[in-house]
Design a protein around this nucleic acid. Structure first.
Lengths: 232, 232
DNA sequence: ACGTGTGAACACATTCACAGCT
DNA sequence: AGCTGTGAATGTGTTCACACGT
């Protein structure tokens, strides 16, 4: 708590590590809520669902924030990971497509952990425009550029049908948004320098189906009576 | 169209490849809808947003389904990938948690591409139970085991709040479900042999924020006036 | 001539195992 | 004694570049 080795890590955290930092952060916040002050890599790893060597290697990319023989100070590590992920500043998010999914996203309490603020909700459907969702009123898609510029939107969320997604993405990019989260089942075409992440229900189901089929292949005929292996 | 080398690939398709097969499949179906009969790796790759070497390597894991000097027959490849992913059979899906997200999932037209059938919707909230969503009536969570067994559910989708997710997962597992798609922001604990995939909004946003911050670090001070690089 | 299929080179990620600090 | 931090070993994924079949 008093000794803080100022360690400005050397740029370049592996992608795989970045993808796990939010998981560690959530686990640490749960520990913090329970009043835990320090945690070992072994313990934190088990909460986060990874093995401890991986956890230590991941954290080592941020700097040397643990104490040998002791573990990591929870509060300090929460702060370091938050800072690394850019959560110490606020990010404005605009959501386009206020169907069931858009509403679900808008109502997603606390919007993850702090750090994200919903700056606007947009839709093309006149019967949705004007409605209030999550105490914001839904504006017409024509206002996309206005909203992006006036509210300083840096992350665009696309929750439209597949057919509209590319158009929305292009408008986001044109308006200066360089981070896009796409829920529509299409591959988006964006210029170099724009970061797109996708979330795709049907892809996830298909991957599950693939593995389920594999498991069934090995089995007797069908059935899958139970699995529940216990040991190890 | 006449010559079909019966090639029963040798088990063990890399995970990274499996995760891309659904993307190829969707691209191929789009081509099929437009009446395209054959496609080169170069063309298909550009639609799918990957490079052609990767595409060819991926497809080579399924067998030798292309023709040198020509390309791939669209219809045949659609069939082979579908079969590999297990989409030639139907999978029953149960969705637990019929809030905005659950409704969005239930209404997700065609449920991806064919191959998935919604067998049941479940919720704990008495004010939701009994309602009709996507022409199915929502049943009380107490019926989970009944639904799983009577409808032969093999994929469980969890769209509940974080606090209920582990309980639902355990009940799914106990009832014999070995594939779970989890939308709740928690790490699920399941026995060996159960396949869990997670979809997590706040993790995705945090990853985007990390990269956005990186980009901003290099820039002048803040602003991010525009990005839109054009060349290459 | 053309585009697939693939070995070989490279890049990235995970795991092991232990030296070194507390 | 205990637990981090990390080189070295291993495993997985991507890209290159070209031989080979059509």
């Amino acid at each position: 708590m008093t000794s803080r080795p100022p360690r400005p890590r050397e740029r370049g955290i592996p992608e795989a590590t970045v993808a796990r930092l939010p998981v560690y952060l959530r686990a640490l916040q749960a520990l913090q809520d329970r009043g835990t002050l320090t945690v070992s890599s072994e313990h934190l790893a088990s909460i986060a669902g990874v093995n401890s060597a991986k956890l230590r290697k991941d954290l080592s990319h941020l700097g040397s924030y643990g104490t040998r023989g002791v573990g990591y100070e929870v509060e300090y590590l929460v702060y370091q990971i938050s800072r690394e992920l850019g959560l110490t500043q606020d990010w404005s998010v605009a959501i386009v497509g206020i169907g069931n999914l858009g509403r679900a996203l808008a109502n997603y309490g606390g919007f993850g952990t702090r750090g994200f603020r919903i700056a606007g909700l947009l839709d093309a459907d006149p019967s949705v425009v004007g409605k209030t969702v999550a105490s914001l009123d839904v504006r017409h898609i024509d206002n996309l550029e206005d909203v992006v510029r006036s509210k300083g939107v840096s992350i665009g969320v696309i929750a439209t049908p597949a057919t509209s997604a590319q158009g929305v993405a292009s408008r986001f990019v044109e308006a200066g948004v360089t981070s896009i989260l796409n829920f529509a089942p299409v591959v988006l075409n964006v210029p170099e320098g724009v970061d797109v992440r996708k979330v795709d229900l049907s892809i996830e189901l298909q991957i599950l189906a693939f593995h389920a089929q594999r498991r069934a292949d090995g089995d007797s005929g069908r059935g899958v009576d139970r699995a529940g292996l216990e040991l190890t």
